Computed example of a mutant assay.
Amino acid sequence: MPPRRAITGRSQEPRLRFAEELRSLRAERGLSLRELADAAGWDSSTFSKLENGRTLGGPEIAQALDQFYETPGLLLTLWELAMADPTQFKEQYRRYMVLEAEAMSLWQYSVIMPPGLLQTAGYVREALAAGGLEGQELDQQVDARLGRRIVLESDNPPPFRVILSEAVLRNSLRSAGDWREQLEHLVRMSERANITLHVLPFGTGLHGLVNTDVMFLRLLDGRTVAYAENDAWGELVEETGKVERLHRTYDAVRDLALSPAESRTFILQMLEEVPCEPSI
């Protein structure tokens, strides 16, 4: 086993520490990126992006490199810390992300896009690119959003109730393949014991959240906070009375929505409408 490394100032930022550790381990072996790619089985450009901090990759790459470098669990741990690091997010979202990671249960209503916790990589990339991100910033924000899914992938994930406006399921991606993957992911996630998914179909009339996304988080201390957002503003709501009023509105919307079984059938029917991309 390699000797324990001294703690240095570079360990204070998880994403940079992960990248620097990868560079250091490869340098110790005297390997080029191409030689590492040949030995570990990934493309050299992937390792280049990992080592310059442009992307974090997935857990399977961290696990494979742990095995290759004989650093059991080190790189996977650094990867998990980097993915969960709230400083990846824009400043106005950081406090919310910390609370989300600690939540005991979650409820969400989504107006036009799937909840971030349920988005696939293809959806995340197109959504962020449509917002003007590109290059390294785009790669980093894709990693940051996908990293939020750790909340639902733990051994004891919190209950998560989701209401999707039908508009979420009608606002497809440019790539039929990516859109099919997103819909299939929603179906799979709806089958998990801790996730309850409702669809609010068109024709149910106006309601108090008609243009507002809202997420509720029940915290360890028993408090519930909310994050409400529309095209013009976003706000973390912590005052008990305001949260309670929002929650009553959410409950009224849930009463209009399809049951979980009906919602799953609804999404499966929409999947049938997605054209199959021609095989090459």
Score class of each variant (00 low, 15 high):
Gly122Ala: 13
Ala121Glu: 15
Asp143Cys: 12
Glu100Lys: 03
Arg145Gln: 06
Met97Ala: 14
Ser105Tyr: 05
Tyr96Val: 05
Pro72Arg: 07
Leu78Cys: 07
Ala84Tyr: 13
Gln136Ser: 10
Gly122Ser: 15
Leu78Met: 15
Leu74Ser: 10
Gln141Phe: 06
Gln136Cys: 08
Glu134Trp: 06
Ser105Gly: 11
Leu65Met: 11
Glu70Thr: 12
Pro72Met: 02
Thr77Tyr: 10
Ala129Met: 10
Met83Glu: 08
Gln63Cys: 07
Tyr93Cys: 12
Glu70Met: 10
Trp79Gln: 00
Leu81Ile: 06
Arg145Phe: 00
Ser110Tyr: 04
Gln140Phe: 04
Asp139Met: 08
Leu133Trp: 09
Ala144Asn: 04
Leu81Trp: 08
Gly116Asp: 01
Gln63Ile: 15
Phe89Asp: 03
Ala84Asp: 09
Gln119Ser: 07
Leu74Val: 12
Leu117Met: 00
Thr77Gly: 10
Lys90Val: 11
Gln92Asn: 09
Leu78Glu: 02
Val111His: 07
Ala144Lys: 00
Asp143Val: 03
Leu138Cys: 09
Pro115Asn: 14
Ala129Lys: 13
Leu76Ala: 13
Leu81Gly: 05
Arg94Trp: 10
Leu76Ser: 14
Tyr69Asn: 03
Ala101Asp: 12
Asp85Ala: 04
Ala84Val: 04
Ala103Gly: 04
Phe68Thr: 01
Met83Lys: 14
Ser105Glu: 11
Tyr96Trp: 14
Asp66Trp: 09
Trp107His: 05
Thr77Gln: 13
Glu80Gly: 01
Ala101Thr: 12
Pro86Leu: 07
Leu99Phe: 05
Gly122Gln: 08
Trp79Pro: 01
Thr77Ala: 14
Trp107Arg: 01
Pro115Thr: 08
Pro115Ser: 15
Pro114Ile: 06
Tyr93Met: 12
Glu102Met: 13
Thr77Pro: 06
Ala82Pro: 01
Thr120Asp: 04
Leu81Ala: 15
Thr71Leu: 11
Leu76Gly: 06
Thr87Pro: 02
Gln140Arg: 15
Leu78Ala: 07
Leu117Gly: 02
Gln140Glu: 13
Gly116Met: 08
Ala144Met: 00
Phe89Thr: 11
Leu117Asn: 00
Leu117Thr: 01
Ala84Ser: 14
Pro86Ile: 08
Tyr93Trp: 12
Gly116Trp: 01
Leu117Ser: 01
Tyr109His: 14
Leu118Asn: 02
Glu100Asn: 03
Met113Pro: 01
Tyr93Ile: 06
Glu91Tyr: 10
Gln141Pro: 05
Leu128Gly: 03
Arg95Glu: 15
Glu102Lys: 13
Val98Glu: 12
Arg94His: 09
Gln136Tyr: 05
Leu76Arg: 12
Glu80Gln: 14
Ala121Thr: 12
Ser110Gly: 13
Arg94Gly: 08
Ala127Met: 11
Ile112Asp: 08
Leu117Pro: 02
Leu146Phe: 02
Asp85Glu: 06
Glu100Cys: 04
Phe89Leu: 03
Pro115Val: 05
Ala144Asp: 04
Pro86Gly: 06
Leu106Glu: 00
Met97Cys: 12
Gln141Met: 13
Leu128Arg: 04
Glu70Pro: 01
Glu134Tyr: 08
Ala103Glu: 02
Gln119Ile: 02
Pro72Asn: 09
Gln67Glu: 15
Thr71Pro: 04
Leu117Arg: 00
Thr87Asp: 15
Leu106Asp: 03
Arg145Ile: 06
Gln140Asp: 07
Gln136Ala: 14
Gly131His: 09
Leu78Asp: 03
Phe68Pro: 00
Leu78His: 10
Gln108Thr: 15
Ala101Cys: 06
Gly135Tyr: 00
Leu133His: 08
Ala101Ser: 15
Phe89Pro: 05
